[in-house]
Amino acid sequence: MRFMVITKATAASEAGRPPATEEFEVVGAFIQEMVDAGVLLAADGLHPSTQGARIYFDGTTKTVVDGPFTETKELIAGFFLVEMKSLDECVEWFKRFPVLRPGDGERSNIEIRRVVQAEDFAEEMTAEQREAVERRDAGARFD
């Protein structure tokens, strides 16, 4: 099963301060360990929310609001896509995530979410629902 593991923003990451050399190294080593074990599919970090935007949907009105966003701790700072046998395995792996930030008593968390894949639908979906998905997918652009 596939998981998205979300790391959260900190004051430092939102301020755009690049990680210290040491942090690059330990996180790099952790990533390498997951590559060696064949579990990591992708991993990326995100720029501070100053370089992002939000689109608010309210009925038919769409409002674009540029970053930064205020609720730092709830913001996404990066993500991993991993293939694990179970949530337990994913949890054990990411307990090893070397958090150097936030420090200064700031509390942070890593969020693990399971990625929905086709087989998750197989059982619950009715034939009509599946057909609807097929039709939607068929109409979708390839990439």
Binding site: K85, S86, D88, E89, V91
Partner: peptide, 8 residues
Amino acid sequence: AIETVWRI
């Protein structure tokens, strides 16, 4: 947790 660590 132990069982999972063990498997890893």
